[in-house]
Structures are given as C-alpha cells and as structure tokens.
Design a protein around this nucleic acid. Structure first.
Length: 980
RNA sequence: GGGUGAUUAGCUCAGUGGUAGAGCGCUUCGUUCACAUCGAAGAUGUCAGGGGUUCGAAUCCCUUAUCACCCACCA
C-alpha cells in the first residue's frame, strides 16, 4: 500500500508508544550489548504538577541522550518519578476539601487528612506520567518512584538519624522566613523579593528623664548645616508596629551626631498598659548606615534578620510580637510585651480593618511624636496615601520597598513573609559543604555551562544553615520524640512555636529506637503519645514521649533522589550497578534548591558524587522572552503543541534551540517549521518507495557503489554521524539538530534525491540497483541518526519494511569517515556549476523550464572530468540542452564563470545587455574586494612568518581561484562592451 | 551593594583567533514528474560604542552604554 502524503502524528504516536511499552523497550538494560551503564534520574516533577514547557524541554533533552545511549548498547536506566511537594500538595487537597464543603484539615485531624492526600495522589498523581509519555519519554516506568514510597521514606529517615547522630542536624531557635498563611517555616530560597511602593515613617524616640543634647549635622565639607537642641532621636521605619519589640536603638560608632547620647535610654513612643513608656538603650553597632535616614536604627531582634544579628551581638532581649498567623500575640504569659489593646490585631491593615501598624501610627501622631519632614523634602501628590487612616501624611515618606513574598511556585499563594523566631531543625551545612565544593573544584563533577560552577561556588562558599523543618502534615515526619525536661516538670503548656522551652529530644528511625535512648535518661518508663496535649494529660504518670509534628523540607528528601530511588539504604544490585548516575539534566533555577543539596547529601551519606556531569539548560520563556505565567496569559501548553504538530516537531524544536546558556524563547512558528521538516523526511521516503528503493533487502553496511553521487552521499552521511556524535558527547544539542537538518534537507533532499532521479528512472542495470541500494542505506541512516530527537516519525518510517528490530533498539552506527575524495571533489564542482548556471539564468530571466545550449569556453582537467562523469545529472538540474566546446562567444550570450571553467549561454534576442553588464560588474566588484583582502594579507610579511602554513596556503589557493574567476568575468565584460 | 551573562540580518538566535551563519519573515519566478507543510533565485550586517593585544578579532583584554538574571539588601 503506498504511503500517505503526510505523517499522521496523532494516530501513529499513540500506537508506536504502546508498541514500545508492550515490548519493554524502555526497561533498564533493554538493548544492552555492553557492560557500561548510563543512568539519568529524572528531576521529579511535583506530583500535583501538570506538564509545562519547562518539563517538556528538560525531558526532551534527557530522552535524546537516553535513546542515543540505548542505541549504542549501553545498559541504560532512565529513572522516573515524582516529588511529594509538601506545601503545593497539601494546599491542593485543602482547597479541594474547602470546595467540596468537607471538614477542614484541622477538623479532620492529621491521620485522616493524610489518608485524603494519599487518595488524591492515587487518583491524579499519574497525570504527569501520561503527559510525559505523550512526549515520547522513554523512562523505565516500571520503576517509577515517589519521594514518599516506603523504601524512599526509610532512606530519608535513615539519613536524618545518621546526620543527627553525627551532629550534622540540630534544633535551634532561629529567625526563619515564616509563611503566615500556611503557618510554616520556608526556605530562604523560596522567598522572592518584589518591589512595592511602601512608606517610611519617621518618629521621635524621646530621651529618658527629659535629657537633651545638641544635635549637629554637617555637610560633606564639614560645614555645619543644622545645630539644635533636641530631646529625641529620630527613627525611620517601614514597619512601625514592630517598635513594640524594640530592644535598642543602634547608631554607627563613627556617627558624631549621636555620640553624646550613646549609652543613654530612650522611650519607645507607644505606651504600656499602665501609661508608662518602655525604655531602651542607644548602642553602637556597625550595622547602621549613617547616610541613610536619620542614621539611627531601631533593633527588633525577633522580627528582622539584620536586627537579629545586632541583637545577638549585644545580647538584647528578643521580644516575640506575632503569632503564627501574623497577629499580635494575645496570650497572657508574663513575657508577652504587647500592650493589651494591641493583642490579636493583625499586624497591618487587612481587608480594610486597621491593624497594629495603623493603631501605632495614630497613637504616636496624637502624642506629637511624629517627625515632620525636614527641609529640602518636597511633597508630591503620591505622598497623600489614601489609606492612612487619619494619620498625618506629613510623617509618611514614600519609599520603594522590597517585600519578601512566598515564591509563587505552582499553586502556592503569594503572601508577605514574616521573619519569625521559632524552634526549627537545621542542617549544619557548613560541616558538609566541603566535599561538595571539592567534587566540582577537582572535576569529579562537571557543571555545564561553566558559569554554573562559579555560581555554585559562590553560593556554597557563603552557605547558611539550612532550615529543614516545615510545619506541615504532608511529608516525612521528623523522627524525633520529645520528653519532658525534669527541671521544668512536665510543662507542655506553652505555645509550641513561640517559646524557648527546652524539651529533651530523642532521635531514632522508629519510636522503639528513640525510646532506647530515652530510657537511658528516664529509665524504662517511656511510652508514646500522639501529641503534646496528650502528653500533658499523662502528666505525673510514666514518661510520655511525643513525636515532633513537623515534616522535613521537600528538598531534604529530593536531595536523596539519586540514591534513594535505587534501593539504598540497602546496597541492592541496582544500587551497585546504576549509582553513581551519569548526568543530571535540569534547569539552572534549581541549582541551589536541588543540585547543590544532592551533592552535599550524597557525599555526606555515601561519600560519592551522585553524578559526574550536571547540564544546566536554559529556562523557557515565551517568544518575547517573558516568563510564562497564567496571569500574563502567555502560557504555551506543550500538549497543545503535541496535538497540533506532533511530539516530534516539539522535540526537534527544543533540541534545536538548546544552545548552552541563555534563555529559550519558544515560538509557534519554529515548531511549525520543524513539523515541515518531518514532512520533508516523510516525502523523501515516499519518493524512495515509489522508485523501488525499498523493494530489495535493506543494506546494513555502507554500500560500495560506482557512481559519483552515491559515493558522495555516503561520505556526507559519515560526516553527519561524526557531527552528531561530537555534538551529543559535548551536550551541544542544537549542533546535533542543526547538523541533521542541514544533512537531511540540504544534502539528501535538495541534492541527492534530485541527482538520483536520472539514475533511478533510467533502466541501466548497474546504476539503478546501486542507487537504490545507496538510497536505502542513506535513508536508514537518516532515521537512525534522527531517532533520538524525532522518535515517532522515524520509528514509523522504519516500520514500513520488515526489520529484525524496531528502530529504538537498532544499533547506532560506528563507521568512521567514508568520504571518497574524488567523489567529493566532483560533486562540489557539479553543485557549484549548477548553482552558477541557475543563478545566472534566474537573474537574466531565462524561463525556468527552458533547456538551453551551453558553450564551454575553457575548462581545466578537473572540470572536464567532473562534467564527463556527471553530465546527465548536471544537465538535468541546470536545464542544459547541450554542451559544446568553442573558442568564440556569439553575440548576446551570458557568461558563467565557475571554478576551473567558463561557460557561455547564447541567448540572442532574449537578454538585456545592460542587465547582463550590471550582473557581471556586481560579481566582479565582489570578487575584487575579496582579492584585495587576500592580497593584503599575503603581502604582509608578518602573515607568512606568523600564521600557520595551512592558513597561508589556503589564502594563496583562494587568491588564485578568485583571480582566475575575475579574469573570466573581465573577458566577458569586454566582449559585452564590444556588442554595446 | 555583590555576582553572572547578554548586545551579530527585519524577527528569534548559532558562531571562543583565519573570507560573517541558520531558521522564520521579505522580493521575484515556478506546481502532471517525493513534498506548496514544496522548489529555484535574490536582497539585507559599522558583529552595541571606544581603546588595546595580534600577521589577523564577532571571538582574547580594558573601558563605556544598555538590558537580563541570580544573590544579599537601607532600618
């Protein structure tokens, strides 16, 4: 049955993928003919996720490598799987519950809620897998892993316990980024700063007991610009509500303005419940910048990262002002410093309800402790902010503020992050960072592009402790149980997050394990309870231990992805065989989140690098270079592309654009272009089929034909193989795709198929069969070489004939350079001649279909030979009727100069002499320019002595050739001039 | 503030010392003869500006400008 005119991607892709799966084509070790392994771990997408263009790009590149290596006979494992994605997943399920009007998470309790999450995972966790399949991803799906699988969980817990026992994990009260919406700590890396128009307020902090000082301000020349007696220090802040927790006011030691009052006390301008004002000290610290604001900074140790450092240096009390929801704390504990009227208020205006900030401003304003603007400040209309709630606008200064926002990953909401002083678990990264740095520095792991290494060093060399606890339910629960501290009694009645109440911690993979160490302290009286409330209820009985309710940061578990998916902590056959893996392919945006952590953790756990190469690919943007986002409405859904143009077109486009570095701007026009490429390949096969090329057996070895064209295309094929190998070895995916595009379209279709027509369509008993054989072989090579990038259409074309194996398991070729130098030279000449004749004809408006007689004025041996051997082909492609040697050129002929030969096409009456003269002049000018350039180089004595000989020789050859051509043109112009 | 990278054809981008490239778009011509998802021909460049190294620079160095991203951030 003859082939269809085009490839039906939708129908064929599903059928072919099913065929591959049915035969187990993707299984680890499938088609392995050698012992070496090649392992890639998929960067696990969120289990909540659906495929976006970033995934499509990332997985296309992985699949290209995997298919290439599999065809080469490596024992290939591409390990798929998904990440449980703590926050994102918990949120999805919570929203679902709310939507369905179910009990909330809090109402249903931890156990029941987790059941719901697992149910949800079972229902929709497989979406992304099916989407990856549509792309053609050849993962070993039988091994699909999940970061909450039982074995993976064991690995995670074991690592926690080991690291805990080695002192690499500790619990501490630290200032962390706090998400008041989810009420959990988040990683520094998850915070994104967004510029917003904010305000800065200036307030007077009065000196205690009516003290005064002379405030002197100087300009840069040291001249006094202001000198007055003051009883206050001016403090600027963007967050007035935090002044309730101030521990001091800091000024820079070099700041002369405040030298007289350092060490004195000032009053916080918000009254305590009893009407008094809390007093704090003015201290010296290097942190304040004397040139910014008033140069004096209020220090709120519990709610600002910089202030926190200052407070620690000076041993200041850190007053916690807010609860886990971002409201002012309302409990009655004696250490609550918040005045009664502020308790329970949100920290700032929300839903139109004024919060602590607005109340504070109003009170301060009423007391006249706002600082009016100093001279030199010109108010603008923007200063009159609408929602000031009766506040004197004079004391507000507009200010561009960087607000920390929860990074808008997936479904997470944007919420302003609050620095919070809480008890959290940390990895002491400084202790494990060394091997991860050395691995890259010493080249055991290479990062591509190299700039990634610099970024990697920069971050790791300045690494901060890693907060790994999250106040969520969905995730790996921290394997630590708390027991009572004897001196505190059984005191669990304080707020878990907001107190420094120490509890004895016992770590173990299971309760039994943790209990063993607990018994060393308490004796054999411990038992497990499910919560601290329950522990409280058992006060006075035996010793109740309750498990830390927090879970581990998702990145802590995904940091173990390479080894955890391979069976570790057991050293299984798989672990031994496939670990360490080979290459990690991922976006540069998760270099710190994930790559650096995998390096640190694998090295800490098994002292091996998890992979030898990290390829950081571009981030995908829209055609304008903007991030794709739902709000911008510029999202390209890769599955829409697959539906419309087929997976191969998308894959080829992405591969072709995968240059090293930069961003990838995806546009639909390109995809369309590469869909056309598939059609072109398809039609070349159609041509072959119609010409009996596939009638005989397919040659598996390069044929040895007699015809120049056949030898030529075999040589070109071998060059392409070398280019593709080189490109993929060096991760230059775009080079591989471009080499194939240029070969298949530019060489095979544009020239070889055309050249082959007279041979195939004649009935010569040697030329025809050898051309059929050669074309069959060449087209097979096209399919093989393209398969890693365009697996579907190539497999479909491969299957047009009976084959021993499907293409996916066909051996990647190993032949080396098959170029026949004579064939190469002849074809180069023939192509140049055809190009030149076509060009001259087109420019002189010779009808395209018209066969013309051509006169040969002169030709060197090579040219004569090339003509003689390929006369039929050249005549057909250049539309030449006959070639006649001659010494005289008739009137009204156009001249065509070609390497080593000059031709004339007599076109009396057809041509326009002026146009021909213009054409020749233009060509001559171009040549002259080149000749001058070459001559200047060669005439420079330093060139001959300094440049490599082959460069000099090449320049000389080029010069001779150009001069030759120019001379021919000059002759033609002279003849033409005689006519005119 | 620190870091990294970018600036090449109308557009999107390759190109790490040896005659400036691709795709798309554009212009002209052309469909019985694999393919109009096509073919043939053509036009288009101070390789951001300035300086330096070199026989030779889009490429290496310095500098200026603009832009992008990452990290840290001024209360």
């Amino acid at each position: 049955m003859p082939m269809e005119k085009t490839f039906d991607a939708t129908e064929a892709e599903a059928r072919i993928y099913a065929m591959w799966e049915a035969m187990g084509a993707f299984r680890a070790g499938a088609n392995a003919s050698r012992a070496e392994t090649f392992t890639i771990m998929i960067p696990p997408p969120n289990v909540t996720g659906s495929l976006h263009v970033g995934h499509a790009f990332n997985n296309t590149l992985q699949d290209v490598l995997v298919r290439w290596k599999r065809m080469q006979g490596y024992d290939v494992l591409w390990q798929p799987g998904t990440d449980h994605a703590g926050i994102a997943t918990q949120l999805v399920v919570e929203r679902q519950l709310a939507k369905a009007g179910n009990e909330s998470r809090a109402e249903m309790g931890r156990e029941k809620f987790l059941e719901r999450v697992w149910e949800w995972k079972a229902e929709s966790g497989g979406n992304i897998r099916n989407q990856l399949k549509r792309l053609g991803a050849s993962c070993d799906w039988d091994r699909e892993a999940f970061t909450m699988d039982a074995n993976f969980h064991d690995a995670v817990i074991k690592v926690f316990v080991d690291m805990y026992n080695k002192g690499l994990i500790y619990r501490g009260k630290r200032l962390v980024n706090w998400d008041p919406h989810f009420e959990t700590a988040i990683s520094d890396l998850e915070v994104e700063n967004v510029e917003v128009a904010g305000q800065m307020w200036h307030f007077k902090y009065l000196l205690a007991e009516g003290a005064t000082y002379i405030y002197v301000e100087k300009n840069q020349d040291g001249r006094v610009t202001l000198s007055e007696e003051r009883n206050y220090i001016s403090i600027a802040t963007t967050r007035p509500e935090t002044m309730l927790g101030d521990g001091a006011v800091a000024v820079h030691p070099s700041d002369e303005r405040y030298a007289p009052i350092v060490g004195k006390m000032v009053e916080i301008p918000i009254a305590n419940d009893d009407g008094s004002f809390r007093q704090i000290k003015i201290i010296h610290d290097d942190y304040p910048d004397p040139t910014f604001g008033s140069g004096a900074v209020k220090i709120t140790g519990a709610h600002d990262f910089n202030d926190h450092e200052v407070a620690r240096r000076h041993g200041l009390t850190m007053h916690i002002l807010m609860d886990t929801k971002g409201n002012m704390v309302s409990h009655d504990a004696p250490d609550n410093i918040v005045p009664t009227r502020y308790r329970g208020l949100h920290r700032f205006i929300k839903d139109g309800i004024p919060g602590a900030r607005e109340l504070a401003i109003a009170e301060i304003n009423a007391r006249g402790r706002a600082v009016t603007r100093r001279s030199g400040f010109t108010p603008t209309p923007a200063d009159d902010i609408a929602d000031t709630g009766g506040v004197n606008p004079a004391l507000q200064v507009p200010y561009v503020e960087d607000k920390p926002i929860m990074q808008p990953f997936g479904d997470r909401s944007k919420v302003v992050i609050e620095p919070m002083l809480t008890d959290q678990w940390f990895v002491d990264t400084a202790k494990i960072v060394g091997p991860a740095l050395d691995a890259v520095r010493q080249g055991r792991t290479r990062i591509i592009p190299e700039s990634g290494e610099k970024t990697y060093y920069h971050w790791l060399e300045n690494i901060e402790p890693w907060c790994i606890s999250r106040q969520l339910w969905w995730g790996h629960q921290i394997p630590v149980w708390y027991g009572p501290t004897p001196q505190d009694g059984y005191d669990f009645n304080r707020d878990y997050d907001l107190t420094s109440n120490y509890k004895y911690a016992f770590c173990g993979a299971t309760f039994e394990e943790a209990a063993k160490s607990a018994e060393l302290r308490y004796g054999p009286r411990v038992f497990e309870v499910s919560s601290k409330e329950e522990a409280e209820a058992f006060r006075g009985f035996e010793v109740p231990l309750y498990r830390d309710p927090d879970v581990l940061d998702t990145w802590f578990s995904s940091g173990l992805w390479p080894i955890g998916t391979l069976g570790w902590p057991n050293w299984t056959e798989d672990t031994k065989k496939y670990f360490p893996t080979d290459v990690l392919i991922t976006g540069s945006d998760i270099l710190f989140f994930w790559v650096a952590r995998m390096m640190m953790m694998q090295l800490a756990v098994v002292e091996q690098e998890p992979f030898h190469t990290v390829y950081l690919h571009q981030l995908v943007r829209d055609e304008k270079g903007e991030k794709m986002s739902k709000t911008r409405g510029n999202v390209i859904d890769p599955l829409d592309i697959v539906d419309q143009y087929g997976a191969d077109a998308l894959r080829f486009t992405m591969t072709q654009m995968a240059a090293i570095g930069g961003v990838l701007k995806l546009s639909e026009d390109r995809i369309k272009g590469y869909r056309n490429f598939g059609t072109k390949l398809w039609n070349a096969h159609r041509f072959a089929e119609m010409n009996g090329v596939f009638d005989g057996p397919r040659p598996t070895e390069p044929p040895h034909p007699t015809q120049t064209v056949n030898n030529w295309i075999i040589g070109e094929t071998s060059k392409t193989l070398a280019e593709v190998n080189e490109a993929l070895t060096t991760y230059r995916f775009n080079d591989a795709a471009n080499a194939l595009y240029a070969f298949v379209w530019g060489k095979v279709c544009d020239w070889y198929v055309e050249f082959s027509k007279p041979l195939l369509q004649g009935d010569d008993t040697t030329h025809k069969p050898e051309t059929q054989q050669t074309m069959a072989w060449v087209l097979d090579q096209c399919l093989i070489l393209l398969h890693p990038i365009m697996p579907f259409i190539t497999e479909e074309l491969w299957g047009q004939t009976d084959r021993p194996k499907p293409l996916i398991h066909t051996d990647w070729p190993t032949y080396s350079d098959l170029t026949d130098p004579k064939a190469h030279q002849e074809m180069t000449w023939a192509i140049a001649m055809i190009d030149n004749i076509r060009s001259a004809r087109a420019q002189m408006n010779v009808p395209a279909g018209l066969y013309v007689p051509v006169l040969q004025l002169n030709a060197d041996m090579a040219a004569q030979n090339a003509w003689a051997k390929n006369e039929t082909l050249i005549k057909r492609l250049a539309r030449i009727e006959s070639l006649t040697p001659t010494t005289t050129v008739p009137k009204g002929a156009i001249t065509v100069a070609t390497p080593g030969a000059t031709f004339a096409i007599p076109l009396a009456g057809i041509i326009d002499i002026a146009a021909e003269m213009a054409r020749l002049t233009k060509a001559h000018e171009k040549l002259t320019k080149e000749i001058n350039g070459l001559r200047n180089r060669l005439n420079n004595p330093n060139f001959a002595t300094s440049a490599p000989p082959e460069v000099v020789a090449e320049a000389q050859t080029n010069l001779t050739a150009r001069q030759d051509e120019a001379a021919q043109l000059t002759g033609a112009m002279a003849r033409l001039a005689e006519l005119g």
